[in-house]
Design a protein around this nucleic acid. Structure first.
Lengths: 125, 125
DNA sequence: CTCCAACACGGGTATATACACCTTCCATGG
DNA sequence: CCATGGAAGGTGTATATACCCGTGTTGGAG
């Protein structure tokens, strides 16, 4: 049931972000890049608690969309240095309000008591 | 955060079910088949609130694992009739206790108040 | 200075998931 | 009785995700 609920809620965000051509996972990752840039794939993976290879592939998708740029680390030539592009930053600017509308809408449907409870649960997990 | 939490909890179930060679999605689907058999792909999709094509592919995996059998519907030759195999039923018998141990362990970690709250939230979504 | 263990990525493989489109089959109106 | 619309599946494509293993780089032990 948790998985099903997450899928359903995710699809609401996906539909909201669809006009921008990105989905919820890409939005999340883009925000992480924004917050940590320049950032290595390993650090992104640690932050998002995702497998490194997953991050690598997802970042490549964002790169193909022109939303992030990948360079080699200056010091450590093993590392990638991921940064937002101008287009990536613009996308986040537009996506932010859409995201928040979505969030508000869902929170309204849930009601304040359940929202607080859910936040507390997610903090513990 | 919801997605991340779901991934984390899912991986706990995945590890618990790993000795049986199935994951949480497969376990879920297998339980649906058990409950509804003989069942069409469309009905499984409706029940699980998943795309029909997703169900089709996931059922094919279970079939390859020898846990379900697919036949053509007797009346309507478009329909598939999915049934558990003996091996599928055995797998569920063994998986049930593992699943419940997992559930209990997670509920213990969350605490009874949050468990109740979460159940209520999932019911609403 | 050299060599090796540890680290960062990349690619292979497999599953889960969705959407769009195609084929086949059924059921019904004319 | 037949044509056609709609239902059931299947396939192509794309992304998300994880695990395993290979390659190349770094940094530190000796």
């Amino acid at each position: 049931m948790l998985r099903s609920a997450t899928r359903k809620i995710g699809s609401v965000y996906d539909r909201a972000l669809a006009p921008l051509g990105i989905n919820i996972a890409q939005y999340s990752l883009l925000r992480s890049v924004e917050r940590l840039q320049p950032v290595s794939l390993t650090e992104l993976a640690r932050t998002a608690e995702l497998d490194r290879s997953t991050i690598g592939r997802n970042v490549r998708v964002l790169e193909r969309l022109g939303l992030v740029a990948l360079e080699r680390g200056e010091d450590d030539h093993r590392e990638a240095a991921v940064n937002l592009t101008a287009r990536g930053a613009e996308t986040l600017d537009v996506a932010g309000p859409l995201w928040e509308d979505c969030q508000r809408s869902i929170e309204t449907q849930l009601g304040p008591v359940r929202v607080t409870a859910l936040q507390e649960i997610l903090r513990v997990i």
